[in-house]
Computed example of a mutant assay.
Amino acid sequence: MKNTASPVRVTDDSISFTKRRKTANVLVVTDLAALADDMVLLATVAGVDAVVVPVAEARGSWLQNGMERFGWDPRAILVGPDALDAAPQSAAEAEMHEWILLGNELQQASLLAVAARAPRIRVAILPFSAEWLGNFLTELSRRGGEAEHMTFLGLAGGVGTTTAAALFAARCVGSGQSVVLVDADPLSGGMWERLSMGPHEDSSWESLNHHEPVPWGVHIAEVLPQTHGVSVLTWNPAGGEHAATPNLPVDFVAETIQELRSAFDCVVVDAGRLSPSSLGLAETSTHNVVVAHASGLASGQSEVLYSGARFGAIPRRYGLAIIGAHPKGFDAYALLNQTDASYRSSLPSVKRIAQLSAQGRLLEASSLGTVRSFLDDLAFATFLSEDQFFDERYA
């Protein structure tokens, strides 16, 4: 992945959202250099971290000691033919991790004898099982859709939905998360020019649409362009090699987002204005934010919030992000009490944000004081409990 700018600055008061497990750790127990090199390479291609453990160290309570001393979190343990004594002695010992015994055809009998101790122990005869082993490790790198998933929907067009989504993605990066920003608004024409001054690479919806089925999330993550530490999936305004009209099926977009949830800590989606397709995406989201402009709410758009839930025009559960200065007499608290919104966050000053956006520097606005307060309110209402918020904000 190519990073076109330095990561968003992390300050001492940055909120650290609940940490998700990073790429799965794989332990390779062997003194055979060629086997160790092959397994590390295979794990790297699969997107997992591999640690080679010498046979002499794999004795007694070696695994527990390594977890406590080095912070190992092994999902799989690959044991070479020279380290079979390190394999579990019983089914109970094999329950916590995936154990795979490695060897060639000549070593098959001894591998199977050890595997007979516990039904969970697998055997990989190389090189015949190399493809299976690669697929197995790739599956380990997938988090199973555990990532936080925040969808931003606009009450109308041009209210700041893309701005809110992009700034929230930058805020997550500033808190140490791996983040992907997904432009699922078919009317956007692409958001890259607002996020970066660098050229857009041809890794976009247009190119992804030529893959069937949807690639695994870890593979999509490898090719997405980055800016300020945020991976971005958007439309390519230049068309590119796979130019296509931005009219992808909602199911395809939803499946892609689900795959990305297996490869990132946080998936932030700009779903565009409220519509049947954006509401369809909101159905699978863990958190939804309806973005509205203060002037629009004051002049009658709030009626959509009052009646929308009854007619399915807005998500069943959502937060409200109010963009722009509040007109005289506008009462945001009264509005919240009269709707089904579970919380609200306001961003009254947007002039500087608009300037940075026009310069391809939108994500830099996440460090502005008023913007940080806006984003922290969203984080508090969605990702953090009250105790977490105060413990991490004011520690």
Rank of each mutant, 00 (worst) to 15 (best):
Ala109His: 05
Val29Trp: 02
Leu167Met: 01
Ala395Asp: 15
Ser61Arg: 14
Val267His: 10
Val55Tyr: 00
Leu41Asp: 15
Gln388Trp: 04
Arg273Lys: 13
Leu347Pro: 02
Ala321Gln: 03
Gly154Tyr: 04
Leu63Met: 04
Gly324Trp: 03
Gln301Val: 09
Gly145Glu: 08
Ile121Tyr: 00
Pro315Ile: 04
Asp185Gly: 02
Val250Glu: 15
Trp216Ile: 09
Ser90His: 04
Pro88Ile: 05
Arg316Leu: 14
Ser61Ala: 15
Gly239Arg: 08
Ser14His: 03
Pro348Tyr: 08
Ser110Ala: 15
Ala91Gln: 12
Gly80Trp: 01
Ser307Trp: 06
Ser373Cys: 11
Phe264Leu: 09
Pro199Ser: 09
Gln89Lys: 13
Glu392Ser: 10
Leu187Met: 14
Ala130His: 11
Glu93Gln: 08
Thr286Lys: 13
Gly296Gln: 05
Asn288Phe: 02
Ala5Tyr: 05
Leu167Asn: 00
Glu57Trp: 03
Gln107Glu: 13
Gln258Asp: 15
Phe390Ile: 11
Val45Ser: 14
Ser373Trp: 12
Leu140His: 03
Thr370Asn: 12
Arg372Phe: 07
Arg120Cys: 13
Arg69Val: 05
Gly71Val: 04
Gln301Ile: 07
Glu146Cys: 14
Ser90Leu: 06
Ser14Ala: 10
Gln226Asp: 09
Leu279Trp: 01
Val51Glu: 14
Leu356Arg: 04
Asn288Trp: 00
His210Met: 13
Lys22Trp: 08
Gly176Val: 00
Arg120Lys: 14
Ser275Arg: 06
Phe264Glu: 05
Gly47Cys: 02
Met67Ser: 06
Leu112Ala: 14
His293Leu: 13
Met96Arg: 14
Asp387His: 07
Arg21Ile: 13
